[in-house]
Structure formats: C-alpha cells, structure tokens
Design a protein around this nucleic acid. Sequence first.
DNA 1: GTTCGTCAAGAGCAGTGCTCTCGTTTCTTT
DNA 2: AAAGAAACGAGAGCACTGCTCTTGACGAAC
Lengths: 232, 232
Amino acid sequence: MSSSLTARERVRAELTREIADVARRQLAVDGASGLSLRAVAREMGMASSAIYRYFPSKDDLLTVLIIDGYNALGEAVENADAAVPHTDHAGRWMAVCHAVRDWALAHPHEYALLYGSPVPGYQAPQDTVPAAIRDTVVYGRIVSDAHRAGTLNPPGDHPPAPPSFREDAARLRELMPDVPDDVIVRGLITWTGLFGWISFELFGQFNNAILNRAAAFDHTMRCQARTLGLPA
Amino acid sequence: MSSSLTARERVRAELTREIADVARRQLAVDGASGLSLRAVAREMGMASSAIYRYFPSKDDLLTVLIIDGYNALGEAVENADAAVPHTDHAGRWMAVCHAVRDWALAHPHEYALLYGSPVPGYQAPQDTVPAAIRDTVVYGRIVSDAHRAGTLNPPGDHPPAPPSFREDAARLRELMPDVPDDVIVRGLITWTGLFGWISFELFGQFNNAILNRAAAFDHTMRCQARTLGLPA
DNA sequence: GTTCGTCAAGAGCAGTGCTCTCGTTTCTTT
DNA sequence: AAAGAAACGAGAGCACTGCTCTTGACGAAC
C-alpha cells in the first residue's frame, strides 16, 4: 500500500513519473532523437545532472516511454475490441484496425518509436515484451474466437506450408489457440499488412499516391478481413 | 563529355562522391543517427568545416544517401525481375519479394533510412521520388502484365469499393495500367504486406516469435501471390 | 545527536552540427 | 601574361548534447 512508502520514496516516484511525462511531451513534439535530457531538466527547473538520479541513461528513459507507448496502444486496442459485440468478429477486426491507425495518427512519433527503425544503439530489454504484445494478444483472440465459432471461411487455397514453418506456427498458436496452420498464415499476413499500411502512411510512402487515406484504409482492411475468412 | 570539366570540377565531383561513400560506410555500421560529419571528415583527413563546401548540411548528405539507397534497392529488384521469364508472373513476384528482403537484410540501416521512421527534422525533397518508386514500378508492371495475360484469378470476393477510393485507384493505375479497381486493392495489400513483413522482421517485432524467417517469408509471400490472383 | 544514505547542483569532458574568418589555390577575364 | 573573382582547406569558435565527478545540504534511522 502507498502509506508504506516513506516521504522520500513518494517524492522520488512522483518525480520519476513527472520526468517521463515531460519527456513524452517533448517526444510528441520533436521525435525520439530530438528528445534531450537537458531540455527535460530545464523544463522541470532542475540541473541536468539530477535527471541521472532517476534514469541512469537516455536509453532507460526511452525504454519506459516505449513501454508506456505499447501499453497506451494496447489499451486503445483492447477498448476498441471490447466496444464491439463479442460474436461480431469482422466488426472487432475493423475496430482493432481503426484503433491502431487512429492511435498512430494521434501519436506519430510514439508510433515511430515502437514500430519504426530502432534507435541507434538501443537494444530492447526483455521487459518490453509483455507490453509490446498487448495488441497482438487482442488480435489473436479475435482470430481464435472467429475460428472456434466456425465463422471463418477463407477464400481460395494456399500452397502447402513447408515443414520448417510448422515450428513457428506452433509458437504463434499460443496467440491464436486451436487455429490451423493455414489460418495462422492468414493471421500473420493480415497483421503485418495492417502495420505495413500504417507505416507506409505515416512514414510518407503514400505521398502523392494515396490522398483519401481514411477511405482507402477502411476499404483495404475490409478486404483483408475477407482474406482472413471473416464474412463481409 | 568529361574532358569539358575543369580539373577543379573533376576533383570536386570526385570528393563529393568519396564523402558520400565514406558516409555510406559509416551509415552501414552505426546507423543514420550515428552518422557524423566530423567523423567522415576525420576519416578523409580533412577539416570538418571543409565538408560543408560539398554538402551544405547533414540533411543534404542524408538525401543523397537515401536516393542512392532507393536506386540500389530498385536496381536489385529490377535485376531480380529480369532474371525470371517474362510470362512467369508468379515467379517474378516471388523474385521481387526475395530481392527486397535480401537487400534489406544485407543493408539493414539503409533500409531503415528508406522505410523506417523519417529522421527528425527531415523533409524528403521531391527529387527522391523517381528513385523511391523504382521498385514499385517493377511491381506494378508485374501485376499489369499478369492481368493483361489473363492469368490473374483472385480468390473470393471483395466488398465494393467506396466512391472516394476510385480517385486514388485511378492514380495508382498509372503504376498498374489497365488493371481493375479490385486488383489495384489486392496489389496495394500485397505490396504493403511485403514491406510490413520485412519491417517487422528487421525492426525486431518477430523476436521470440518467428525464428525460421526465411521459410516463413517464402511461404507467406507465396500465399500473398494467391491473394493477388497469381497461380500457385 | 550523530551518522549515513540520498539528493540537487555545478563544473567539466568529449562529442556534435554549423558558422565565420583567413590565407591559399585555381579558374576566368582582360 | 597579369589581375580579378571564385572556390577551397584549415582553424577557431558557438551552442548544444549525453554523461561523470565532486561538493555541500538535507532527512531519516540508530
């Protein structure tokens, strides 16, 4: 409980949070590499060296921003999924797609931090993983639910998967329980396709090519739902 | 002709090229934001201020590296496409997929520069466009060729495209001449899916999830070919 | 009440992009 | 061929960065 914390511990936790908040605001404005510990310290009215009492390095600060970002995106996806009737699997898929895109458009620099090029010497610590897959967990549940409900009817036929793929498919099945290999492939295709689209849109690859992006995105993801086997 | 250049112009062109070459090597090692004009100058044995006679700013240096990168990738894609019989559209698609992935794996930092998060204050000049779409042009030609040859047989049915998408489809048809709207959507899905996959793989999103990536990639892209309507 | 750990602050180091000036070299014009 | 103009390399310097080390003050535990 919080009363078990000493005054010193409480102010330390408070300051740690405040530094991260200021850093997040600067990140939103200037992007990841425009983030400066000294600027954060200035905005907080403290010496730059004092920041290092709370974050041993800039990478550590970035790590909490990354984790926070994954959690914010994951929460947005969870909420979007929960707002749709549980058995409306196609609706849930579309809700998730739009939630990811809306969040990315609202937080472009944070999205770039999560799904863009990794920052220079940065090596993602293992403790980012749980936060990083929150959205993927939601997605896997939708696919799994749809398959178990028997509403998945994928069009066409795929070539047989090579044996070497089956190991990875088994691993991915933890996210999409009970689902056959072919559907796992389709899940992988649509999931990477979602982020591929958003990255293209956010990173400028659609400049001078696709202008009405909301409409194109909605229609494309609707088609992806068909590829996955969801009803139109 | 080259003899019309003065000695000064020749050495200037030579030095400009050498600076870009050194910068490209540093980029390959340290990544985009690890690139330092002073380090380039040191490696060339010249004063750091002298670099600015050739590139007015770091962004300008990055711009030529970006253009060179797009051209290198585009050339790799063109070569891969040309190595496959012109009527083997599925083979050409697979060749292009593997060419992009192979190039990305061989030049991860350059790929990140092209398709990762844009560098902080960087605004892509218009003159990167021709180089940037070299690979896309090849891809569009494959789709167009396949459609005109009548070998495109997309599985399933897509929901009707909204009217607002038709303008963008018309624009994209410049890259895929004669192709109907539905195939343009499928082309868009598979193309963004290709880069979405490679970005996920390169930027660490497949860590602890997909291990046998070459096999998974090959199989996934083969399935994408089916989505596009190419024969298995 | 003393001691010990925590803290903020300041100075400082090595590095960055970029600018300005100052001689020197090279090209162009007369 | 001589004079002027343009381009050039080098150096110093500015403002900035991440990060370290030391110093002195504060608060909590014994």
